[in-house]
Each structure stands twice: as C-alpha cells, then as structure tokens.
Write a protein that binds this DNA or RNA. Structure first.
Lengths: 338, 338
DNA sequence: CCCTATTTCGGTAACGTTCTCGCTAATATA
DNA sequence: TATATTAGCGAGAACGTTACCGAAATAGGG
C-alpha cells in the first residue's frame, strides 16, 4: 500500500539506467546537464523521496545526525537544539535525539550502543561526570564525524564549539567590582567539567586584576540546579567570613541564591550582588531581576551543526576546528546598588 | 574500517543459516530454544548491533519514531519529549525530531516531505493554525501509525493523549470563585486549537455553575507568549467593566498578566486573582508566585509513546484510543486574598 | 583518416536484513 | 503401519540505493 516511487521508476519512465538517475540526483557528476534536468524535473513531479535506509546501506549517507546531551528541559539546551534543528532541516538532515539525564552510566550506554551505521555524524555535550572518554574516541577513530558543544571533552581531539566562558566570567566579576562589591564568592559547577574550569579561571583572574583577595572558602562546587544554588549559599552563609556578592556558574543556581537571600531578608542588589550566566528567561522574571551574561545558545547550535555538516561532506580531509562565541553582559537589578 | 559485525558473521561462526540467526534475534518463532540461546549469547559477546537501515529496507522496522511539534523551548514540550524519550529508549527506539516553529507552512512542509519509509510511527502536536489536516490523514491512510498529543486534531481519526483541559479549567475558575473573586475574565489561546476550546468550555461551565455572568468582552483570544498575555490584560483594562481576576490559558500568559498588573500598582492576590495552566517552573519563581493547574507533561509523553508503540507492534489490528490525564490544582500567592 | 581522450552512460555487484517457500526429521494420529 | 502434522532450519529473492568498472559515443590532435 505505501507504493513509494523509486529511482527505478524514474529510470524506467525516462528509459535510462538507475545508475544515471542516482548520479543525477546526487552529484551532477558524469551526467549530461540535459538528462540531469529531466531527472530532477520528473522526480519533483512524481514527488520522489529518497529512501535513506537504502542509501545508508549502500554506502551513501543516512541523512541522520545524532545529538547526545544531558537534558533538554532547560533553556540553554532547548535553544541549542532549536539552532541545530534549523540548519539540519535546511540541509535535509534529520536529527535523532539521545538524552542522558546527566548520568554517566546512561551516557556510556548510549554511546556504546550508538548505531553509527545509521548516523552520518553526531553532536555531543557530555554529562557532568562523563566517563565515556574512550568510547567517544573509539567512535571518532572508526570514522564517524563528531563535534562537541558547550560541555566539551578537553582531552578528545575533535571539533568543538563553545561560548567564551573565560571572558564571560571575567566580565561578570568585573561588573560586580565596578558596582562596588569586593567580597566576591563563586558558586561553581561540577569540578570535572571543562567550562566550570574556564569560568572559575575567569573569576580568579578578574579578582587578581582588581587586586581582590581570593578566599578558598568562597569557591564552592556542586550541581547545576536551583536547589544546589540554595544549598551553596547556605554553605557560604555559615562560613566565618561572609561575601557580599556571588557570581554563579549559571542562572538556575543564581536564582536559588536570590531566593535564599530574600528568605533571609537581605536586599539583593543594594546589599548583596548576584550575577549568573546564561540569560535564562527566568532571569528577567524573578524579582529582583537577575544580572547575567547571555550565552549565544541558538548560535552555538547553528555553528555546531554547520561544522558537523562540513565534516560529513568533506569526510576525512577536513581540519578539526574550535569555535568560541562571545557572550554579552546584561545588567539588571540584582547588581544594582540603588 | 567500520568493520561492523553482522548476522552473517554469527551464522558463519555458529555454522547455521542467516535466516535462523535473524529469527533467533527477533521472534524466537520457529527456532529451537537451544540454538536461540547460542545466537543470543554470541551476539552479546561480539557486541552485535542490528543495522536498522537494512531491516528497514527489508521490511522489518526502522526503530525510528518521529516527533512533530511546534517548539521545544518551553517547559511543557521539553518535558513531554523527555517522557517520550524515556520509553522509546527503554524499548530500543530512536526518536527523530521535527520542530515546526508553530508555522503552518513549515508543518505542512514537514509532513509532506516526511519520509515514512524511515519511520515506524509518528507522534504529533500540531501548530496553532494547522492546515495539514489531510496530509496527516494521508499518512495514516498509507498505514503509518500516528498518535496526537496535547494539540490534537479533533477531526482526524487517530489515537490521542491529552490532559483533562476541561476539568482543569473548571477547577481553576472554581478556585478563583472560592477565593472570593466574581468578575472573572479568561485570557485564551488561539481560537482554532482544540484545547483552547476545552479550557474555554470549562471556564464557561464553571461560571454557570456558580451563577456568575459571562461577559463576552472578558474573553480574549491571542497567542501563547508572555507578550500576548501582557497585551491581553491591556485590552481587559481598557474595557468599560474591569474584571477582578483572570484565568489564563497557560502560565506564560499569566506571567505577562502579573507583570502588567504589578506595573499598574495592583496587588496581585489580595486585589486581583490570577491563575494559569501548566505549572511552568517560572510559576514558583515569580513574585507573587502563580497559582496554576499542573499538567502531567512527562506522563503525556510516556503514554503517547507507549500507545504509539502498541500501534506499531500490533500494526493494523489495534483500536484507536483516546487517553485523558488529570491535572492538579496548585494554589499559590496569586490567588491568595490575604 | 586514424588514434587517443573525454564525456556520458549502463551493468552488476554489493550493503544487511527479512520474507516466503520448501525441505527434512521427528512426532502424533488414525 | 501408513499418513498427517509439526518443529526446526536453509536457500534464495527482495528491499532501494550507491560504487565500481567498462562500453559507447563524441571530440580533438596529428
């Protein structure tokens, strides 16, 4: 009943061979422009749709690209996916989704069982305590194009696209300093992740640049959730020396901080500065609104996908590249003194 | 270099035919339990991965299911996808994503060009002004299993899973009434969508049940964004009779309403009641926090996918079903009188 | 006018499965 | 004992495409 039309049908009708039709539909190579035109025209007329199963089997591409990431239920990742989806769709690729729930076991399971035969390439953002290092390397060694985004694996030799975590962090802390805060703590992410290291480095360098002391007790690592942010502030608050501002690794944690501060009767802004990272829409909604450095999530998605597509079409002979996209500081009420 | 192992390898090693291996791996039908055991064991040992391109081509399934939806950048949809993903993963299916950006043209393009040969089935939530009615019907007629979720097409004969929009709306309005509000407006969604009709019906019936007048000017339709909510409140505010409470079709619009009200110096809660629908995490963050009826998004995803999988394995002989999942009312500050 | 390149095309063999038969041996039925 | 049934397996075609190689036709150079 499906009764799909195939290149055989086109070949029969045009009285040419399937080889020629196949070439006309793909390369234009080794085929007369005139017959190519006829093929293309008839294909459109008959609403021909290539069978990617067949082309995948035969050695052409499958037109599928995989995305492996921890979550899709947050602003950043859902925005990245939207960006990826946009360019994939434009180029005729499908995207297939694997979410790891930020679990190393799940991630490992996913990449081990990855059916690279059904995927032309894969985009990945690793989970917090990724242990799948060599599995990714294995996939790459087998010849599957891979590009990492956001949460990259520093040790793996592959293309990467990230936002400028270091400079974003530096500017965030600089902003805090310029607003007159001087006892600045950092609520960081999981210690293993590359970008928490980069944001931490930006924080430290900004402190040094402005001659501020670094207090080890004021650097606290944990997860990415709002609850983690609340707990981290608790820790800071119980320390012997209290900070007067916090730079949080992301907005969710910063929001946890604000909520805790409000609960304690502290005036966020005038008395205590808070700045986050991401520009989650919640940042504008919460009161006081949250200063942050906006990440180019959509752009990260687009560029990752474009890069991957280049790896795919150029196959072997394409250089590994690393792209860094700038963020932009957005000052709101949570760092406003008056 | 990929050097994947195939059922041929297994057959050769075990000195049996590929047919037998194929059956052992799938049915268990027509194969001795003992040889089946040997096949399964060796397959695991060699880390055999089925080539879905091949099985798709040969008439077995492709193990891919498609999802077509308007967005993924909001809480509800990203949660639904997570639910879908969870059961798909457990059952060994991949999910491939198509986002329409809530554009009817894009949606049409997607479903027309849908490569049903590469998909075992598809899950869909239509866009606001879907015009793809007959295209979906065509796909279904061709034999591709389809189940709709959330934004369903009433006119299409297919399985559906939705939350209980009518009762959720009814309870929301009832809650407003019990808090002492009596001039209740409804900020609705796009008029064409099934669920906006259902929520409107719940609103109307609740008013009637409690003997409250329905004021046509107090029912305003527009899109789903926060900005739409703000604009809608503006309209309500400029009318000759002002309401004292609003039931919004979703949380994003309700948040727009709260923001506008705050800007106007109205005390949300004591002086003006606001209730939404969804339980977006933002509802708990905004101040005053937003009362709402929580949608079982994750559960909608799970059940949709399970339903689709049943359609897929039972192929023709499986009844179309409609599942309705209950929501739960969550009272917060935006409807608290004192 | 012959010889060699080049362009354009076709034949055929894969790719890894599943499906449809048909076969054999063992068992059950009469 | 003769016949029918069944359980277990294998051979081979098919799915739609691409890759590889060679053939025919045309063009260009001497």
């Amino acid at each position: 009943m499906p009764e799909h039309i195939t290149i055989k049908d086109i070949a029969r009708i045009l009285n040419i061979s399937v080889s020629t039709v196949s070439r006309a539909l793909r390369d234009a190579y080794d085929v007369n422009p005139e017959t190519r035109e006829k093929v293309l025209h008839l294909a459109k007329e008959l609403d021909y749709k290539p069978n990617f199963n067949a082309s995948g089997l035969a050695g052409g591409g499958t037109r599928n690209i995989g995305i492996i990431l921890p979550f899709i239920t947050n602003y950043y990742f859902s925005m990245v996916i939207t960006g990826i989806q946009e360019v994939a769709y434009a180029k005729g690729y499908n995207i297939v989704l694997y979410v790891t729930n930020d679990s190393p076991e799940r991630e490992m399971d996913v990449v081990r069982n990855l059916n690279t035969q059904n995927l032309d390439g894969v985009l990945v953002s690793v989970c917090s305590d990724s242990a799948a290092n060599n599995y990714f390397e294995q996939i790459i060694a087998e010849g599957t194009p891979v590009v990492f985004f956001d949460r990259v694996l520093g040790s793996v030799d592959a293309s990467k696209v990230v936002q400028d975590d270091y400079n974003g962090a530096f500017e965030a802390v600089e902003h805090l300093v310029k607003q007159g805060f001087s006892r600045i703590a950092h609520i960081a992410g999981p210690a293993g992740l590359d970008f928490t290291k980069h944001r931490l480095a930006g924080y430290l360098d900004a402190l040094e640049r402005y001659g501020l002391p670094v207090e080890p007790a004021w650097i606290v690592h944990s997860g990415f959730s709002q609850a983690d942010g609340e707990a981290d502030l608790e820790v800071l608050w119980e320390g012997k020396e209290r900070p007067d501002a916090v730079f949080a690794v992301n907005d969710r944690k910063a929001i946890g901080v604000i909520l805790q501060l409000k609960k304690r009767g502290i005036r966020v802004g005038p008395d205590f500065g808070v700045i986050g990272f991401t520009d989650d829409p919640m940042s504008a909604i919460i009161s006081p609104s949250l200063s942050t450095v906006a990440e180019p999530a959509y752009e990260v998605g687009k560029q990752s996908c474009e890069l991957l597509l280049q790896h795919i079409v150029r196959k072997n002979n394409f250089q590994v590249r690393e792209i860094t996209l700038p963020g932009v500081l957005i000052a709101r009420e949570s760092t406003r003194r008056s």
